[in-house]
Design a protein around this nucleic acid. Structure first.
Length: 391
DNA sequence: AACTCCCGCCAGACA
DNA sequence: TGTCTGGCGGGAGTT
């Protein structure tokens, strides 16, 4: 019996699963709050503004909190710290990963014992004394600890630590789940853990902290840690070839050299985040550029305000190949004809392409009409002359 | 078929 | 007791 939910009877709906993804939600969240003047975030407000359920906001907030982007202030209230807080949070994680006695750094770390009441004081408080309500007094501590051990925030931090301390550059979520679960061989637990890792990975991917690709050997979907520096470099696509972007197309291969280079970067990400200079690709050349890394660190999802070379955020267009920086007196019509920004966001790219095509066809149509009009007016003029002639 | 991950139930914490 | 928080896994969409 066909139901309304049968695919055959489904009207082409406007519903898009992708539009509801945590990654997209995170991008929207950051666009909403990652700007000057934002200090406090209300969860209700966020949910309303973004048009999503509160439950989804908790997911985003917990993940962002674990990398220091915001901190819990009170019930329903968070303090916006911004991306400038990420370096410090990651440095803390790196320290924890390197000093924690419980960490067993074999091929992958076992994080099953990372958490104890001393280690985990809530996602964001690696740097504070934590008077937060997350820290409970003895009464509910035992049961709470168990809950905390499984929290998304902690899982996020351990996930990051896994990348930091792992010898592997690419880690599949299965591998990560196994490492994070310890010796548990429960398929249900595995599936649950992988689900959560997908959530985290989507958020980090949208922030360009993480990159998804296929493992060259196993062919399995895997993730590569980019970090902030990787982020900056990833954003700066060599102008001579957009395909050379560090952001690979899903499933493409990685050369060993790339692997080595990026692995090196991975560690540099953590030590150099406070650096005032970063390496960027400008017009195909690698250049050192000064940046304000602290309070003036450019907001991630917003287009760069000062530098033309920096490209931040998933919606920022990437300069197409062969297009040099605009010179004075440039032929803008030619530029419009040859230059099409390559939006990283496929939807935007498609949309832009659509508008370009529409504009072109409109232009052609208009030109034709103009031509026809001129032609017919000439004809009528000529006819008029003829008529006059016949008069 | 495997991968991906949205969605919302529901239990525990909190006011 | 009502509300907030968020772990969890079913199952639908995507590849």
């Amino acid at each position: 019996m066909a139901s309304l939910h049968d695919s055959e009877t489904k009207v082409p709906s406007l519903y898009s699963r992708k539009e509801k993804s945590l990654g997209v939600l995170c991008s929207n969240f950051l666009r909403l709050y990652n700007r000057e003047g934002v200090e406090s975030i209300g969860l209700d407000n966020a949910a309303t503004q973004l048009g999503v359920e509160r439950r989804r906001i908790y997911d985003i907030v917990n993940i962002l909190e674990s990398v220091g982007v915001l901190t819990r202030k009170a019930k329903n209230q968070y303090t916006w710290k911004g991306f400038k807080a990420i370096p410090h949070a990651l440095e803390e994680l790196r320290k924890q990963a390197s000093t924690n006695d419980n960490l067993k750094m074999s091929q992958y770390c076992s994080f099953g014992t990372v958490v104890n009441e001393n280690d985990y004081r809530g996602p964001s408080n690696s740097n504070n004394s934590n008077t937060d309500s997350h820290t409970k007094t003895c009464g509910s501590y035992k049961s709470d600890t168990n809950r905390k051990e499984k929290s998304l925030g902690l899982l996020t931090q351990n996930f990051i630590k896994l990348f930091i301390s792992s010898k592997e550059d690419l880690i599949s979520l299965d591998t990560a789940a196994t490492a994070l679960l310890g010796d548990v061989h429960d398929p249900t637990a595995m599936r649950t853990k992988v689900r959560r890792l997908y959530d985290i990975a989507n958020v980090f991917s949208s922030m360009d902290l993480l990159e998804k690709m296929r493992h060259p050997e196993s062919g399995k979907p895997s993730f590569r840690w980019l970090g902030l520096k990787g982020h900056v470099e990833t954003k700066c696509v060599p102008l001579d070839n957009t395909i050379n972007s560090k952001r690979r197309v899903f499933g493409t291969d990685i050369s060993n050299q790339d692997d080595l280079k990026l692995k090196k970067q991975k560690m540099e990400c953590l030590s150099d985040w406070s650096s005032k200079e970063v390496t960027v690709a400008i017009n195909g050349n690698i250049e050192i550029v000064k940046v304000e890394c602290d309070e003036n660190l450019p907001p991630l999802p917003l287009p760069q305000r000062n530098s033309k070379e920096f490209v931040f955020g998933p919606f920022t267009p990437v300069v197409a190949s062969g297009v040099k920086k605009s010179k004075q007196g440039q032929n803008w019509e030619n530029l419009a004809d040859t230059y099409r920004p390559q939006y990283r966001n496929k939807a935007l790219n498609d949309l832009f392409g659509h508008y370009v095509e529409a504009w072109k066809s409109w232009y052609v149509e208009a030109a034709e009409k103009k031509h026809t009009l001129a032609f017919t007016s000439k004809q009528t003029q000529a006819k008029g002359l003829v008529v006059d002639d016949t008069r």
